[in-house]
Design a protein around this nucleic acid. Structure first.
Lengths: 199, 199, 199, 199
DNA sequence: CATGAATGAGCATTCATTCAT
DNA sequence: GATGAATGAATGCTCATTCAT
């Protein structure tokens, strides 16, 4: 990468990081472009060199942060020696819940915006070639599970929605139970759903 | 109810109906208070006689519309003679999915805002005394099921989140499968979760 | 007129007057809405209660000012006892040129924006019922002229364009001749055009 | 001309042509320098190597396009054998009106900006030495007319303004009459004005 | 109870111009 | 000569809310 390109990447990162900080601090609506560029130390116009508009930076931010969480969970998985597919998936879910529980502002940000489409698109076009696509990782886990699955897409979809939906309130409000109280039932439900899809 | 009170109710209803129409047509953000009062034919100030602010009318609107959907599902249930608790719950879920599938704009509106808290509060303070509280209805179904349940709140919570989350994308985008393709897996998952909670 | 309505009229007038002052001082482009409302002593939003946007106030302003000039010229005509139609028309033209020559900033403002459509629409919906419509005045002069004219609309149209176009540069730049040098030729040309249209 | 200079000329022409296309498509205000350079395929900075600013390119563009129209009209005149000065002038006017009528976007562009000054300056410093200055052409027609004229500058000035003003609305809006309906009266008016200036 | 004129803080976005490379 | 990343001033417009009538 040339010097100029490196500089560009650096500026975009500065904007993304600043935006993350402000969005989680003050909320998306209450954060203005001015806030972001002032904090990031660039000119207003520079923002529009890197992002189409305010929604664009939120989208890119969520994609980036979500990918980080998933990637980290997968890296942790690889440090373990977990054989069964169910255990692997639950391990990843547990890692992700742990990360979000430790960082509720991140949860709030990605919360209602982490759509199926983003997951399918690997949460972001792979910035780094070496990095694996999240969806591909899931497909690999499936393949190596030694099982055949009925509609694996539907299976993962339902699990994601159940986990995401359940955890949102629980982490942010503690209602209707605490995260730790929820987990055993949630993980058991995941196991049941998986087993139900094994052919 | 006195004549004056009836008149007040009428105006509030006019505002709620207009807001519903505009929110679903143009979206919440893009709908201004001015739009609502112009369409409803009342003065700007009158709005603030009935609603605290813009968020207040959305909250009341979602509560009202959600209650309507649930109440209707329950009424349909009573017309049937379904014995088992699982079948009853799935019947209600099916009715609700049917209603939302037939009215995606309603789904969009309540979508991400139908929180556990609203459900717990019966989706709205009972406007009509005769009407039963939705949460109470659920508790009654439980009681009459002939079973004892482990953490029934957690059970219904997970089911709601799974159903709500799964159906949102599926109805609005058809991704990753169609509603009809999803249903058998979704309902089977509900059964498994319920059975897992039977003591 | 009620007190409230009077107040509204007053505010609109204040805005129009301020806008006139600023548009002629600094030009249309260089004058911002902020400039206008600050000077007029009203809030930004108030501007948009009375005018659709920046173009709207310019249109209304030109209409108002043009009407004033024409009305004044007609009033002066009535003080004279001029019999012939040609002399009447030239008297009005002379009055208008005099007014614009004395107020070149007004000329600049209305200059390129005084379209045929505005003239046809009497330069503005008659604010005052008592006031005669400019186009109607012209038609009356025609009727009382004792002549029949071939295409009187085309006749007045060509005269207006010739006069307006010729005077713009002459008044503002003195090129290619002075106003006083132009007048005899211009008025003679008007006479020729009129005679050419008498049947 | 050297190769380097040819290259410069080429780039300037590319910018002028692109600007013409965009100005007529989107309007002057709505066209940005960025639009022009992107479309022309040169860098932003390059624009400022050839034009002082945005107004400069418009001025040069109008001058160029107007000259083209006039030059073409004069070339057509030379193909005819028209003796009388009046007929020659009206032929040219007719040619120009024809050209503008066939290309209203060009009319819109030069419309309100074709000042007397530009005409006097031959609509642009002669790009090509061989090409005759428009004002000179007019003076030649006058000289060869066999007449003496009183204030020929005033005469041509009034005619230009009458023609330009009259045709603008008529071509663009069809108001108050069509071009074809206007022409006989317009041309007759031109004849009268000319005759009035013959000594 | 109802009105609706007035408010004014707030914000996204554009774009001509420069200058280091 | 050519580039294009960076600038940052400038501005039109919205809209929830209030309060005098």
């Amino acid at each position: 990468m040339k010097k100029v390109e490196l500089n560009k990447k650096k500026k975009q990162d500065a904007l993304l990081n600043t935006a993350y900080q402000l969005f989680t601090e003050k909320g998306f609506q209450k954060t203005s472009i001015s806030d972001i560029v002032n904090e990031a130390g660039v000119a207003k116009g520079t923002f529009y060199l890197y992002f189409k508009d305010k929604l664009d930076i939120r989208y890119k931010l969520i994609a980036k942060k979500s990918a980080e969480v998933f990637k980290h969970a997968y890296q942790e998985l690889q440090k373990q020696s977990i054989d069964h597919f169910e255990d692997q998936l639950i391990f990843i879910v547990d890692q992700v819940i742990g990360a979000l529980n430790a960082n509720p502002t991140l949860l709030k940000l990605i919360s209602k915006h982490l759509s199926w489409g983003m997951f399918k698109n690997s949460l972001v076009e792979p910035i780094d070639d070496a990095q694996r696509n999240i969806y591909d990782i899931y497909m690999d886990l499936l393949k190596n599970s030694g099982h055949e699955f009925d509609h694996p897409e539907v299976m993962i979809y339902m699990i994601i929605e159940m986990v995401a939906g359940s955890c949102y309130n629980v982490i942010l409000t503690g209602e209707p139970v605490s995260v730790d109280e929820l987990k055993p039932y949630l993980y058991q439900s995941i196991r049941l759903i998986i087993q139900n899809h094994i052919l």
